[in-house]
Design a protein around this nucleic acid. Sequence first.
DNA 1: ATGCTCACAATCCTATAGGATATGTCGCGA
DNA 2: TCGCGACATATCCTATAGGATTGTGAGCAT
Lengths: 237, 237
Amino acid sequence: MTATSATPEKRTLADEAYTELKSRVIRSELVPGAKLSIDGLAKQLAFSQTPIREALARLESEGLLARRPLSGYTVEPLLSAAEFEDLFEIRMMLEPRAARRAAEARPAGLVAAEAEALKIAARTPGTGADKLDFTEADARFHDSVAELSGSAQLAKAIRRLDAHLHLHRAYIEPESIEETEVEHLAIADAIIAKQPLAAEEAMCRHLERSQIRHRAAFEAARTTEPAPKPKRAKATR
Amino acid sequence: MTATSATPEKRTLADEAYTELKSRVIRSELVPGAKLSIDGLAKQLAFSQTPIREALARLESEGLLARRPLSGYTVEPLLSAAEFEDLFEIRMMLEPRAARRAAEARPAGLVAAEAEALKIAARTPGTGADKLDFTEADARFHDSVAELSGSAQLAKAIRRLDAHLHLHRAYIEPESIEETEVEHLAIADAIIAKQPLAAEEAMCRHLERSQIRHRAAFEAARTTEPAPKPKRAKATR
DNA sequence: ATGCTCACAATCCTATAGGATATGTCGCGA
DNA sequence: TCGCGACATATCCTATAGGATTGTGAGCAT
């Protein structure tokens, strides 16, 4: 879940199914409204129903899927235009504060390693990278800043917005990768230099520009596919 | 989930198990660190393992339980003092804004009904009510304000803080019920009167005072039971 | 007496089959 | 054309069995 997890944790089949299904939703292999059949997925992924059920339950509780009690799971729709704006409004409430707190006094011991890790996280994948790679790198950086805020609650709140998940479902502007990296580095530098106000300000500006960059792509995604209304959403067998 | 859901939705056994277990955690029948045995719970609740697993998966994804892959589920610890302060800091970022937006222009159609509902939600249970009733009433009011903000994203973010859940786990100051109601009514009046700044300010003050009220109880809870360290946490059979 | 190794029991995880119930569709009659 | 009832589908739930892993406790060596 966290980008900084270094433990080689044991992975159960339920975890496997969870990440696989989540990935499919994010990369739009499962479009909004699509129906998910439990034993269909079980056969397809080649393990039994139990781990599938657990994965679906988790995804539902995260808001990616909806469950209608005796009818099955379906994929939740994309963010509306209003929800998109709301999402960034909330990010503007939380993330600049996280950046500020990350730049404020912290135990000065492991700063060197942290600084290094942060600079690395700020980098975006170069040429030849997938769109998804870019989204994930961006998510990792924002997660890192949130973690460095020192507030587990704040980090959790930011993570649960699932901002990058929603953004990638809508689309990505690949030509903005370099801009993003510049802005990330500005934030990272301010944090490392322990300049709280500069970090807060840099995060603010980054979010504003990111919102503008994504808005275009988002509008495009909404208008090009205005809900084809398939009356029989084919179950993913 | 939402306090305003009026649909008589169908409830599966998994839902049943979910609410039952969540209730047990909130009312501290299941203390932090307690171990949850799957087939123990299945026998106790008298249905099979599958719905139990689904309920546990959901609770884990919400952060109430922790899962160690081949060892079972355990109840997550209470908020630490720092996390308690962080939680209120985040609430201060989100909830006053929600109150402001709720007071801003909304479609003027259903205002009468909404205003009535909000005033009702602002009331706290009178004498003879359980502590849990008070917590739930408080949660309902804050949820109502969040919903009235018109931003589904903001409402979701606030809801996912699970603020009242954490507070009730720690304890409640029953003598502060009247103060709470007064403050709630001030917020509700400002919203109904469409005074955004007043509503924001009232929510701010309410949160500040609420933080003070709960802090005492919270400190007490933390000091009176400083983790008894039971080396064999008894599984709830 | 202390520390280490091994075996046992408990528990979790997975897999599979089958019954009960609700949904959605199709066809029939008014 | 519209409403009603039966069928097929799909889901939810149950039950059970076997493989895998963790943690405990006994036994032995030092």
